[in-house]
Structures are given as C-alpha cells and as structure tokens.
C-alpha cells in the first residue's frame, strides 16, 4: 500500500494545512480535500483518520464543534486553534528540511 506509506507521519501536517485554508470541515470533507488537492495520490485511511483527529484535538491544535446539517443530522466540524497554527508552521518547516535532505540524497547518490 504505497499510498498510505507515503502518508506515514505526515497526516497531521496535511490535516492542519487543509484546516488552515478552509476552516470548519467535517472528517469526510478533510479526507476528500486531501485526496482532491493531491490529485488522488494521497489518501488517508478512513478508519485511522478519526483517532488522529481526536489526538490533535486532545493536543489542543484543533477544536471541534457539533453542528446540525440541513438534513437534520448532526456532524462534527473541526477548525484550527492558535496552537494548531504554530504547530503547522513547525511541521511545515520540518517537512521542508526532511524533503530537502531526501532530495539531496537522491541527487548525490
């Protein structure tokens, strides 16, 4: 499953990035956004998305709220907190340095 392996360790980064652009998304929309923007290359495993969301919520990076949809059902939407913005910055720069390093290794080898 190359697709999920590519996501290893970077799911947090992707979720935070998506939420920074478009606040108040529910879980499915986050997953769909990751798939769409990556051109269907990156796909979060649907079952493991929620534990990750809850972990980030407990860490205080995102916050959740129940809203009622037009259909009358409730859905839980997420948005970024101030701590989450900071975390996003840190994760982005970490990702940049890692991918830079990997690229360098690919070029040199």
């Amino acid at each position: 499953m190359a697709r999920t392996d590519a996501l290893q360790g970077s799911l947090d980064l992707l979720v935070l990035k998506i939420l920074s652009r478009r606040p108040r998304l529910h879980g499915y929309a986050i997953m769909a956004a990751i798939a769409n923007t990556s051109g269907e290359v990156l796909r979060a495993e649907e079952g493991s998305l929620y534990p990750a969301l809850y972990r980030m919520e407990e860490a205080g990076w995102i916050r959740a709220e129940w809203i009622r949809k037009e259909t009358g059902r409730r859905t839980r939407v997420y948005e970024l907190t101030a701590a989450g913005k900071k975390q996003l910055g840190a994760e982005e720069s970490r990702w940049q340095s890692v991918s830079l390093a990997i690229n360098r290794v690919l070029r040199e080898a």
């Binding site: 529910h26 879980g27 929620y50 059902r73 409730r74 859905t75």
Partner: peptide
Amino acid sequence: IDEELQAHVEEAIAS
C-alpha cells in the same frame, strides 16, 4: 464517536 463515524460513511454515500 459512533455518531461521527456514522456521519462519515453517510457523507461518503451521499457523495
């Protein structure tokens, strides 16, 4: 948690 997971699957079907 069940409610949210349920909503996810319904969203998928709706899409």
